[in-house]
Design a protein around this nucleic acid. Structure first.
Lengths: 341, 341
DNA sequence: GGTCTTTTCGAAAACGTTTTCGATTTTAAT
DNA sequence: ATTAAAATCGAAAACGTTTTCGAAAAGACC
């Protein structure tokens, strides 16, 4: 009920709060004897330091903020798990905020986190964000920021990403090597960097292997209900371009929508049309046929992002020079049934 | 870089910090004129109150803690979204912790949150938790706790739940009415209340409709990898009890594991064996056949839990008597393909 | 102009720690 | 025994607010 404070221990022992504080924190100018007494008394009185007071005095909160653009789902839930695990390991708490892909909200939330005196913030940008002064402002105020997944190249801070263009290039190259020739792409909307990069990777892979790029084979999935998008566009493409033999989808969810339509329409996967996903979401092993996809290491991304951030926090604290790193996590092709005849 | 504080505004204006503070907080004993000057100066100096100092002085942090037992996935991601949305709306930040179904961790994390001086905590219990003194202790220390989903009946606090027993009863009754006679149950482990209640609902529905309960038809899924559990137990039950005609699974994920095995083994769903899930997880519409399930309103649950918690926080703050409520959210059967021949 | 009320402001304490710096005591050295 | 060095402790300031309470100034009234 009534928390015990330093002064309670002090008066119970007839010594000063200074001595109690020092004893508890292991200062060397306290005798073994009194330290032992303090520690024991602290235990019996069930003392727990008041974090808020400590925060005020030490000017650090052992808390980091996280801003993610979308609802906690699929890929971001993996990232979040990685973040939570690593933060816990390093003794930090994490405050989560969702910007819902809105720039204004993202900006407001970042300000809120700084006001809360978090020691650093992790963020993945909203689709709308094309002005980065709020982030630069945070960095200028000595609140370290590290960006992950949806980043801004122009912001000078640490980042952890995958190479979307390369991953997409690899995927399409894989399909070409497997003998597929008329490869469609179900892309995302036009703004986010990921969507653009994956599209570019697709296009370059085609061109690099002497296959002419045909814009009619690119369908846009931008309803934010990836699954439905995949389903409907699959239906559409099979009437408009029935001669395709493979689809590279921007997301596993889109791919699963495609497969579902194919299953219902009696279109054989991969015999008639192969399907390639992106992310290696858990469900891709459950669907039939199992989905070939790109493994996007969300958990690892969360891990690394926290690690980078906390390293920077302690560097700043100890007045060491900070160095910004860009970690590019490797992706790899997970070959399953949806592309092997 | 260097944040402006009250004293900066004060000295810029040649007045006291007291006056500045009061002006900013709308105290009535400050003249219109000086208030205007203060507010303007605060704006131009870009003043933002130091939350930590405010927290210390006011003894509240406008922050709530959330402890969930499992990794942010499936059902809990919906709850989390509901929590985040409602907390944002009411001006609270949220700190997330995962207990990984471990009692010791849950206990430690609760203590951590209290030490951090969160204004309240939301928790869903770990599977291991059968001692509730840590929770009672928190409540005794005037940190309100509200339990959701995986609750303990014996703890005196607000709760938001579904009626697991009734939902399960309804599900099994539905199966019986559909003509299924030999209905198995894939249950969860023995400790969590949900698991118990769903099992009891299953058993009661059988008995209420003149079907003898057969303990051999109950399989336990307690590996925390629900999907695999479903898959393996499906394999097992078809050799041990090949005469079943339906399975009521404790979770959509278990159900999906079952369906996956059936699909691979050539067992027709629902013709040979019907499958009934629980939660109405998004993926249940993607699997073939689409899964009949119970809709469990996770998002709404998060909403209500936050609402209850914050109401209690302000009641305590204003010294009003607190009243504990138990909100039971309605569930409903979502009929899909896995149970209709 | 004097009294009384209202308006407007600020000094100071408080929240619970941490840390500097000096004071006192003990031990070591001669 | 004297002095120097080491060990042990505590007073006080500081972190940035909020809020109480009293004081001063201004306005109202006769």
């Amino acid at each position: 009920m009534n928390d015990t404070k330093l002064i309670d221990i002090a008066s119970a022992l007839g010594i000063s709060v200074t001595t109690v504080s020092k004893a508890l924190k292991g200062y060397t100018d306290i005798s073994k004897a009194t330290r032992a007494r303090v520690i024991e008394m602290a235990e019996t009185m069930n003392y727990m330091p008041n974090s808020v007071a400590v925060n005020l005095r030490t000017n650090e909160t052992k808390t980091i903020g996280v801003i993610i653009p979308a609802t906690v789902h699929h890929f971001f839930s993996s990232v979040l798990n990685g973040i939570l695990e690593e933060a816990e390991k390093r003794g930090y708490l994490v405050i989560i905020l969702q910007s819902n892909e809105k720039y204004e909200l993202e900006k407001k939330q970042l300000a809120l986190l700084i006001q809360k005196r978090v020691d650093g913030v992790l963020m993945s940008l909203s689709n709308e964000t094309d002005d980065f002064t709020h982030i630069n402002e945070a960095i200028r105020k000595k609140t370290p920021v590290v960006l992950f997944d949806k980043i801004a190249k122009r912001v000078d801070c640490s980042k952890v990403v995958i190479n979307d263009a390369k991953a997409a290039y690899d995927a399409v190259t894989y399909l070409i090597n497997k003998g597929y020739k008329r490869i469609a792409h179900f892309r995302g909307s036009y703004v986010p960097q990921n969507s653009i990069d994956r599209f570019l990777g697709y296009k370059r892979a085609l061109e690099a292997h002497g296959i002419e790029y045909d814009s009619k084979l690119v369908y846009v999935c931008d309803n934010n209900t990836d699954f439905e998008d995949g389903y409907e566009n699959a239906q559409k493409i099979m009437t408009e371009n029935p001669d395709i033999d493979a689809i590279f989808a921007i997301t596993d969810l889109v791919a699963i929508g495609i497969i579902k339509y194919f299953n219902e329409a009696g279109i054989k996967t991969p015999e008639q049309v192969a399907v390639f996903g992106f992310s290696n979401w858990f469900m891709s092993t459950v669907i039939s046929p199992k989905l070939t996809t790109i493994d996007q290491p969300g958990f690892e991304m969360g891990h690394q992002a926290v690690s980078l951030l906390i390293d920077e926090i302690v560097d700043i604290k100890e007045h060491r020079p900070v160095t910004h790193q860009i970690i590019e996590l490797p992706t790899r092709i997970i070959e399953r049934e949806s592309t092997v005849k």
